[in-house]
Design a protein around this nucleic acid. Structure first.
Lengths: 232, 232
DNA sequence: ATAACACTAATAATCGATTATTCGCTGGAT
DNA sequence: ATCCAGCGAATAATCGATTATTAGTGTTAT
């Protein structure tokens, strides 16, 4: 009854597992499930009207991306929050992204410059908080934020490095989602403006320094969210 | 009949899908299947005496690691060889690994030093080619090579960065597997000796420089293996 | 009273079969 | 002779049901 989605709302026809995967990923990233919560295939399958196999495939993919944990013979779960791991992710970003940014500034062409301008414009004009959308950053802002940072690095022209960025960004965002406080006195907008400015001025030293500071401050904002690590 | 592997040869009891995954991964890394070859679930399932589901799970995991391609509604295949992608992988390694090596040299403790010595000793004493094992590098040497490079970087103490290393190393090894020629005049042993020496002397500049050269030469050795990209 | 054991309920892992899609082939029309 | 339509086999994707493992609960022996 559900396998023929091509007749209903969905315009294109992708695989069932792809839809379920996207839905689950979004749910986890939006924080709909609490960390360490069990992801029961049966519930999810019934919930979305599909078979166990497709849910299972989606979960396996999520595990591969670090968006779910697998406990052998005990099923799947939302990844646990570990302060240490978040700091490691932040350090990895501080290690890699400034180097990528230097490559980007050295190699980026006119098209890159234009896309950086466009991405920054969108980010600057998007409100960070949406009143109706809960207490965290709005979905639109999060996406604009990601696109801005990614665009800055895209000038390097290396898809492998950009895949690495995507992975660490995702992990980083998952951490941010469960961050307790949001450091209200932080001026993201100015940091981003400085980044754009230095990048377009081809000032690699300044840009790398600003990015490092940006990432360091983000990591600092995450410390203290020692929620749910109750020994077990 | 096959689900109770705990009674037969296998000592521990892991999931079926884990064994199948490991077997398939090894087969691909060993080059048992040609690039662009179809990986048919039915054949693999019958071949290993398991159901389609477990093969499917293994293949999905492989795709997540870049060790298999997925063609929607057309199944799975061994990843195609693209010269450009290999150069991108090599550049990514040149971008990230020297920075990691610097961190490692700065932070590595006595245990790290000891493990570096051990890994280099094993690598230096392992023959690169095994007559009976085909025309390529021997399995034992490949593993010792990987362990040496990884151990060098493990001093950084950051698991996230090391995961990144693992991914790019795997991709790089897959490329090496299909490399046409093996640059016979290359002296790996000396490069590795220099690396060990500089690292243990805590000479970060020299070590990073040697590593960059090492990776550059490896990449150069891969150019020209433009096999099998027959338009399509 | 506590600790070890047995039993039961829940669910993870696996399987065999069904449905849907694609590829190759035959045959006819231009 | 070449190109397009329709048929048929192969196989990818999905499903429903079966088997095996785990966690929880209650019981009994010390």
């Amino acid at each position: 009854m559900t396998q023929t989605a091509h007749t209903s709302t969905s315009p294109g026809k992708q695989m069932l597992s792809e839809q379920v995967y996207a839905h689950l990923r979004d749910a986890i990233m939006r924080g709909n499930h609490a960390p360490r919560d069990a992801l029961k295939p049966q519930d999810l399958a019934k919930e979305q009207g599909v078979s166990l196999a497709v849910v299972r495939e989606a979960l396996v993919r999520l595990v591969g991306e670090g968006l779910a944990d697998r406990l052998p013979n005990r099923g799947f779960a939302v990844p646990a929050c570990s302060d240490r791991r978040w700091q490691e992710i932040a350090e990895a970003r501080r290690t890699i992204e400034p180097v990528m940014l230097r490559m980007s500034i050295e190699r980026g062409d006119l098209d890159w410059e234009s896309r950086v301008r466009a991405a920054h414009h969108r980010l600057a004009r998007t409100p960070a908080y949406a009143p109706e959308e809960g207490e965290y950053y709005s979905g639109a802002w999060s996406e604009a934020h990601r696109v801005f940072h990614r665009t800055l690095l895209e000038g390097c022209g290396n898809p492998v490095l950009l895949e690495t960025f995507d992975r660490t960004w995702t992990a980083s965002e998952l951490a941010r989602r469960w961050s307790a406080h949001r450091v209200p006195d932080r001026d993201h907008a100015d940091e981003h403006r400085q980044l754009e400015e230095a990048a377009l001025a081809r000032d690699a030293d300044t840009a790398a320094e600003v990015l490092t500071q940006h990432l360091t401050q983000t990591a600092a904002g995450l410390t203290g969210c020692t929620l749910r690590e109750p020994a077990k």
